[in-house]
């Protein structure tokens, strides 16, 4: 009986005892608390902001807005070439350009950051799919 329990425990161990990865910790805290929350992982403190949100926290000038928009467009081109572009991103990029034209640079920075985030996650999605698409196929 003890032997059976030990085997069962070992069988389940990889599922339950795996350490929480940084990504998992980040996503859980982001989902629960949104941006600008600080959490501790492996003894260190981290914030829950996406890298693009940090990129948008620069002085709201035309040059900075244009720079982030250019980066977002390049990233979206990259994800488009992989076939994983999201539906709303193109319009967000257009809105960012319109905000620059209207002199609303903070709005433009925020929109460009959002578009760049879409593109970055689309690229992640592509790489995940390449490794894992087969897991859903009935055998």
């Amino acid at each position: 009986m003890k032997k059976t329990l030990l085997i069962a425990a070992l069988a389940c161990a990889p599922t339950f005892a795996a350490a929480e990865s940084f990504q998992e910790a980040f996503e859980m805290n982001r989902a629960m608390y949104g941006p600008d929350h600080v959490f501790t992982w492996n003894g260190n403190q981290y914030h829950t902001n996406h890298e693009e949100e940090m990129e948008a926290r620069v002085k709201a000038t035309k040059a900075n807005a244009e720079d982030l928009l250019a980066k977002a467009m390049a990233k979206n081109k990259e994800v488009g070439e992989l076939g994983f572009e999201w539906k709303l991103t193109k319009d967000i990029l257009k809105d960012a350009q319109a905000a620059i034209d209207a002199g609303e640079y903070q709005k433009a920075l925020d929109l460009a950051a959002q578009a760049k985030y879409h593109a970055r996650i689309g690229i992640q999605q592509y790489h995940y799919a390449e490794k894992n698409w087969h897991l859903a196929v009935p055998q």
């Binding site: 032997k3 030990l6 085997i7 425990a9 070992l10 069988a11 389940c12 990889p14 599922t15």
Partner: peptide, 13 residues
């Protein structure tokens, strides 16, 4: 026992 358990563990994954 440990070896058997690890084999089962690997199989479940």
């Amino acid at each position: 026992t440990l070896a058997l358990g690890l084999t089962v563990a690997a199989a479940t994954q």
